[in-house]
Design a protein around this nucleic acid. Sequence first.
DNA 1: ATGGCCATTAGCAATGGA
Length: 280
Amino acid sequence: MLIATWNVNSIRTRLLQVEEFLEKAKIDLLCLQETKVEDEIFPKEIFENKGFNVSFHGQKSYNGVAFISKEPLTDVRFGLQGELENSISDKRIDDQKRVISALVNGLRVVNVYVPNGSNLESDKYKYKIEWIKELKKYLELQTLREEPLCLLGDFNIALEDKDIHTPERARGGIMASNLERETLKNLIKDIKLEDVFRIFEQGSYNWSWWDYRHSAWEKDKGWRIDHIYLCPQLIKNAKSCVINKKIRGNEKPSDHAPVMVDLNWPDYEEEDFLDFESEL
DNA sequence: ATGGCCATTAGCAATGGA
C-alpha cells in the first residue's frame, strides 16, 4: 500500500498536478494539506469519477486537509474536536481546519497541517505550541482504540539540523526553535511513533520544502518539514520511504514535494510467511 | 538582503505562508 503526504498549496491551482501524481505514482492513499477551499466547492467529482474515495475538511483561503483514496475511507473524524469529544481546552484551537483522520484498510491515518507559527514573538507561535500539545492529547485518546497508527502531514518543524540547508542561520528561528522541536519530539516519543523516512535514509540534503523566494529550488536550499510517523507494528512493515523531489520541479509547483511510504499492508503477515519458509 | 515568491480575496492591495 502506497501512502503519500503532500502540501499542495491550493488543491484548485494544483488540480492537474494532483491527478497526474496519483496516476503516475500509483498512489493508494493521498493525504493533502493546504487545500485552501471550502468543503462546498472541493473538486471531489474529478477524483470520484476516477473511482477514488474523497474526504476533506477545509475552509476559505487558508489551511484545509483532505484524503483521496482507492480504498473506502471509514470512521472519518474532523478536527481535533473529532477525537477529543469536548475535552478540548479551548475550542477556538479548532477554528482552523488542520486535521482529518480516517480508517483505510484497517489502518488509522491522521493527516495534519501543523501551524507555521510565523516568528517566535508571534501569538501564532504560541498557537503552534498549544496546537501540538492538543494534538498529543488527541493521539493519546486515539491510541486507546489500538488501531495501527500512521500520523503524517506538514509539521512545519525541522527536527534536526541536518533537516535544514543552512542550519547555522536557521537554528533557533521558526521551524527550528528548541521549544517546537522538543514539543514535537515529546509527542513522538510518548505516542511511540517513529519518523519512517529516517529508517531508510540518514543523510542531509533530503528536503521536502523549498521556499519560492531566493531561487531556493535552483540552489537546492530546502528543509525537511513533511513527515510520516508510524507505530511500531507499521514500522516493521515499511518497505521504503522517499521524497518525490521531481514534483517540486513542475511548472507552477507547490513549494512542497510529496513524501511517500510503501507498506506491506494489508498483507502484513509476510514476516510469518518468511518464518514458515525458513522451516522448510 | 530578516524584500525580491505565490495564493487568495466579493479582488488590482493586503494578508498569510514558511
